[in-house]
C-alpha cells in the first residue's frame, strides 16, 4: 500500500494516458470504422449503391487485419506508423496503431448494426423519391442509432483492453503501469489498483452507453 501511495503521480499519469489513448482512438478509429462500415453496407448486393468490386476489396482487407492479435499488430504496423506519425514509439504511435485496429473492428460492428434496419423502411424512403445518400443519412443511420451506440460502447471497452498493450511501444497507460510497477516488482496491490481503475472506466463507459442508447430508443 505504501508503495502505491509513493507511485501515485505515476499512477494518475498512466490513467490520463489511458484515457487520452482511448479517446483519440475512438475519435480516429471511430470515424474510420464508420466509413468502412458504411462502405461495406452500401456496396453489398441489394444495397443502396451495390458494387461487387468495392465490397469484395473492403471485405478482404478487413478480414485480413481483424484476426491479427493486437500485441503482434502493434509491432507489425510500426513501419507504417513511422511513415505517418514520424516516430514508431510513444503514445501517439500507439494511438495510430490502436485507431487502425479499432477501425477494422468498428467497420464490422457498424455494418452489422446498419443491417438491422428493415428493408421495408428503406423501400418506403425510395418510394418517396429519396436518393441513396439521403436514405443513408436520414433513415438508415437514425433507425440504427440505438444499436450503433451499444456497438460503439462495446468497442470502447475493447479499446481500453487493447490500450493496455501500448506499453510495448512505449505508449504508457495503466497496462504498462501495472506491468512495470506491479507485476515485475512483486507488488500485487499496485497491479490491482490498476485493474480496479480499468474496471471502473469500463463500468462508467458501459453505463453511459446504455443510458444513451436507451434515450435514443426511448423505451
Amino acid at each position: 500500500m505504501d508503495r502505491l501511495i509513493e507511485l501515485a503521480p505515476e499512477f494518475w499519469t498512466a490513467a490520463a494516458e489511458t484515457l487520452y489513448m482511448v479517446a483519440l482512438t475512438m475519435l480516429f478509429g471511430g470515424a474510420g470504422g464508420f466509413l468502412l462500415g458504411v462502405g461495406l453496407y452500401v456496396t453489398r448486393r441489394g444495397g443502396l449503391l451495390p458494387n461487387v468490386v468495392v465490397n469484395n476489396v473492403l471485405n478482404v482487407v478487413i478480414n485480413f487485419f481483424r484476426p491479427i492479435p493486437f500485441i503482434i499488430f502493434i509491432a507489425a504496423v510500426q513501419p507504417v506508423t513511422r511513415a505517418v506519425i514520424g516516430v514508431g514509439i510513444g503514445t501517439d504511435a500507439a494511438i495510430f496503431a490502436l485507431s487502425l485496429a479499432a477501425a477494422f473492428a468498428i467497420g464490422r460492428i457498424v455494418e452489422q448494426n446498419l443491417l438491422t434496419v428493415r428493408p421495408g423502411v428503406i423501400e418506403a424512403a425510395r418510394s418517396m423519391g429519396a436518393g441513396p445518400w439521403r436514405i443513408l443519412g436520414t433513415v438508415v443511420v437514425p433507425e440504427a442509432l440505438g444499436p450503433l451506440i451499444l456497438g460503439y460502447t462495446f468497442i470502447v471497452v475493447a479499446v481500453i483492453d487493447m490500450s493496455a498493450m501500448a506499453g510495448l511501444i512505449g505508449g504508457g497507460g495503466l497496462g504498462y503501469f501495472a506491468q512495470l510497477y506491479g507485476y515485475r516488482q512483486f507488488e500485487p496491490v499496485v497491479t490491482w489498483a490498476a485493474v480496479l481503475l480499468i474496471v471502473a472506466f469500463v463500468q462508467v463507459v458501459q453505463y453511459l452507453g446504455n443510458w444513451l442508447a436507451r434515450r435514443v430508443l426511448r423505451r
Binding site: R118, A125, R126, S127, M128, G129, P142, E143, V216
Partner: peptide, 29 residues
C-alpha cells in the same frame, strides 16, 4: 416517384421519427 405514393402491409414507418417526422419526410425530400 414523388408523384406516386405507396403504402405497405407492414406500414414501414420510420421508428426513429415521430408521426409528424414520418409525414414530413417526403416533403423534405
Amino acid at each position: 416517384r414523388l408523384g406516386i405514393g405507396m403504402i405497405f402491409q407492414q406500414f414501414n414507418l420510420f421508428d426513429a421519427k415521430t408521426v409528424r417526422g414520418n409525414v414530413a419526410y417526403p416533403l423534405k425530400v
